[in-house]
Design a protein around this nucleic acid. Structure first.
Length: 341
DNA sequence: AATCTAATCAACCGCACGACT
DNA sequence: AAGTCGTGCGGTTGATTAGAT
C-alpha cells in the first residue's frame, strides 16, 4: 500500500476512523503540527503527512463550522467567485469556518447547477445565449432538484469595486454624446441609474402554489439627478428584472471604478429578503468589498485589468445588453428595457 | 423490497511555489 | 543555478446517501 508522496512507507488511505481522528487531534492540540511530514510518525498514524494536513484542515479544526451553507454564505460565494473565479481558498477566506474544499464542493454540486438552470454561465456569470443553454441543458434528474432551483431570479447589477481610485469616467454613445457621466466614487452625487425601485422577489413557502411577487426595495429613494439613466422593468411578469444598478452598499448608485463595475446577475435567494438577513448580507458585502479593494491593490496576481483600468469598463454591461438585444446605440430604449426571459 | 441514478462530500492526485541547501 | 523538501491549491475521484422507479 505505497504512496507516491511518502515513498516506500506503508500508509493507510481512504476514510479516517474515529481512532485516527482522535490521535491526530490529540497530537496537534498538544504539540502543534510543526512539519506535517513528521506528524504521522509522532502521532502514531499510518498516514502520509499530506493526508493528515488535509484531514485537520478540512475536518478536525475546532473553528470549523459544520452544516449547510446559509443563503448569505451562498451569496458571498457567488459574489466573490465572480471576482476571483475558482480560487476556492481565497473565497473560503471570506467565509469563516468554511474550507476551500467545502466551498468548492458546494459550488460544484449546487451553485453551479443553480446558475446554469437560471441561464447563467457559472464561469463568467454572464447570461448564456439560448442555444448555448440548450446544449448545456441539465438533464432531468430522478433525484429531486432542490426546489429553489426552479425559482426565478432577479438580475441585480451591483457594482463590485476592486478599487476606488480613478473613479471618474464617462460613458459615451457611439455618436459621442454623453449618456451618463460618472463621478468619483467618494464624491457625491453618484449617478442615479434607476427610475424604478429595485425589487425583491418573495415566495410564500407555506404555499408552494403561490406566485412569485416582486416587492419594492424599501431603502429605495427616487433618483433626482439630471443624468439619470432610466432602466425600468416594464414587464412585471418577467421572471428576470433589470432591477438594480448600484453599489452594494447603496443599491441605487453606479460607481465608476474598477474593472467590472457591473456585477453579473445575481440570484435572489430564499430567505434573503427578510429584513434581518438582508442587513447581515449587506454588512457582509460591505466587508467583502473592503477586503477585495485592499486585496486588489496588494495582490500582484490580480487581473491586470483591475489594476490598470483608469476608465470605466463597460464590457460586461455591453455584453449583457447585447445578449438581450439592446445595443449601445439604443440606450434610449432602455427606458423600456426588460429582460425577455 | 430491490435496483437505479444522481447528489454529496471526504479524500486523493498532481502541480506550483517558496524556502532552503 | 539546480535540486530537494514542505506546503498549499485546484481538479478529480470514488464511496456513501437518498430519492425515484
Amino acid at each position: 500500500m505505497g504512496h507516491r508522496c511518502c515513498g516506500k512507507q506503508k500508509v493507510k488511505r481512504g476514510l479516517w476512523s474515529p481512532e485516527e481522528d482522535e490521535k491526530l487531534i490529540k497530537h496537534i492540540t498538544t504539540r502543534g503540527h510543526g512539519s506535517w511530514s513528521s506528524v504521522p510518525k509522532h502521532a502514531g498514524l499510518q498516514r502520509c503527512g499530506k493526508s493528515c494536513r488535509l484531514r485537520w484542515i478540512n475536518y478536525l479544526r475546532p473553528e470549523l463550522k459544520r452544516g449547510s451553507f446559509t443563503p448569505e454564505e451562498e451569496q458571498i460565494i457567488i459574489d466573490v467567485h465572480r471576482i476571483l473565479g475558482n480560487r476556492w481558498a481565497q473565497i473560503a477566506k471570506h467565509l469563516p469556518g468554511r474550507t476551500d474544499n467545502e466551498v468548492k464542493n458546494f459550488w460544484n454540486s449546487c451553485i453551479k447547477k443553480k446558475l446554469m438552470s437560471q441561464g447563467l454561465d457559472p464561469k463568467t456569470h454572464n447570461l448564456i445565449s439560448s442555444h448555448q443553454r440548450a446544449s448545456n441543458k441539465i438533464g432531468g434528474s430522478s433525484r429531486s432538484q432542490p426546489h429553489d432551483q426552479q425559482k426565478p431570479i432577479s438580475v441585480n447589477f451591483t457594482t463590485v469595486n476592486s478599487q476606488m481610485k480613478n473613479c471618474s469616467a464617462e460613458l459615451n454613445s457611439s455618436s459621442s454624446s454623453p449618456i451618463v457621466t460618472l463621478y468619483n466614487a467618494q464624491q457625491a452625487p453618484m449617478v442615479e441609474t434607476m427610475a424604478t425601485p429595485p425589487t425583491h422577489q418573495y415566495h410564500d413557502d407555506q404555499n408552494p402554489n403561490a406566485a412569485w411577487t416582486s416587492v419594492k426595495d424599501p431603502t429605495f429613494h427616487e433618483p433626482s439627478t439630471e443624468s439619470t439613466l432610466n432602466i425600468s422593468s416594464s414587464s412585471s411578469s418577467s421572471s428576470m428584472n433589470l432591477s438594480v444598478f448600484g453599489l452594494l452598499g447603496n443599491s441605487n448608485c453606479l460607481y465608476a471604478a474598477g474593472a467590472q463595475p457591473f456585477e453579473a446577475p445575481r440570484i435572489i435567494l430564499e430567505g434573503e429578503q427578510s429584513k434581518g438577513s438582508e442587513e447581515v448580507l449587506q454588512q457582509e458585502k460591505e466587508k467583502l468589498l473592503e477586503m477585495e479593494m485592499i486585496k486588489a491593490i496588494d495582490d500582484q496576481d490580480m487581473d491586470a485589468s483591475l489594476m490598470e483600468s483608469s476608465s470605466f469598463d463597460f464590457s460586461f454591461l455591453e455584453s449583457t445588453l447585447m445578449s438581450t438585444g439592446v445595443t449601445s446605440h439604443d440606450l434610449n430604449s432602455m427606458a423600456d428595457f426588460a429582460w425577455n426571459y
